[in-house]
């Protein structure tokens, strides 16, 4: 069963059509990919799915529920989390705080209970901290938990972005170029890491990636965008041998 599905989503900005008629399906517990040259509309597709932009036309379904036009925070609450291509951490805050913030959406309390420290709030806060520490342990960031996030090395920042997304307790994870700026060895580690979290957190993953090695390695299905248009879809093998893709994408690399 498809956990995430889009039907003919189109996104226009003034005169530009960034994404046109994009239809995709993500099966539960699968990892699929989205590729295409720069400016193809990949990030825009993510932005539409996560509610940052309301699509000009088309629909998005999550577990058969139509989520088109829902606000981003509610989409996250439903179980779709994302990372950003251009890393958007809470820079001045610590690594631990970054993860704690992503727990906030599951808190069942109110500011005044928090201020007077009601037992209910204190219990939940304690649980949040434990959970966040465990997660940081999982992604190997526990040693830097008190550092301000902007001071981390680049690779750590990418991992923290993923950890933060995981903390929202998603069912679907959207990764926007997680391997950007990594060398082949780091990308390989990342590949293993992605598969590991998929299994551990019971996730379905939709990722944008430029590193062919990563995409071909982990994705079972790939969509190819060029100028907003879906020019191909299929297994890594099919994509690799598709002449249109080679022309549009692999050719320019």
């Amino acid at each position: 069963m498809a956990i995430l599905k889009t039907e003919n989503i189109t996104m226009k900005f003034g005169g530009i059509t960034a994404v046109s008629d994009f239809t995709m399906e993500l099966e539960k517990n699968k990892i699929i990919g989205l590729i295409g040259p720069n400016g193809a509309g990949k990030t825009t597709a993510f932005n539409v799915i996560t509610g940052v932009y309301k699509p000009t036309s088309g629909h998005i379904f999550y577990n058969k529920e139509n989520i088109t036009g829902i606000k981003p925070h509610n989409i996250t609450k439903l179980g779709i989390a994302r990372t950003f291509q251009n890393i958007r951490l809470f820079k001045e805050l610590s690594v631990l705080e970054n993860v704690l913030i992503a727990n906030h959406l599951r808190l069942k309390s109110n500011p005044f209970s928090a201020v007077v420290n009601t037992p209910n709030y204190v219990r939940q806060e304690k649980h949040m901290i434990e959970k966040s520490l465990a997660l940081l342990e999982e992604v190997d960031l526990i040693d830097v938990k008190d550092e301000k996030s902007f001071s981390l090395p680049y690779g750590y920042q990418r991992r923290l972005e993923i950890a933060r997304a995981l903390a929202t307790e998603p069912k679907v994870l959207l990764l926007d170029e997680p391997a950007a700026g990594m060398n082949p060895q780091e990308s390989n580690q990342l590949m293993e890491f992605i598969i590991k979290i998929r299994d551990k957190f019971d996730l379905s993953i939709f990722m944008i990636e430029h590193h062919m090695q990563v995409v071909m390695g982990v994705c079972e299905k790939i969509y190819v965008l060029d100028h907003g248009i879906t020019i191909a879809q299929g297994t890594p093998h099919e994509i690799q041998n598709n002449p249109r893709v080679i022309e549009a994408y692999l050719g320019v690399e």
């Binding site: 900005f13 932005n47 940052v52």
Partner: peptide, 8 residues
Amino acid sequence: GKNLAEKV
């Protein structure tokens, strides 16, 4: 004015 959404 022109309609411009913030790029993300």
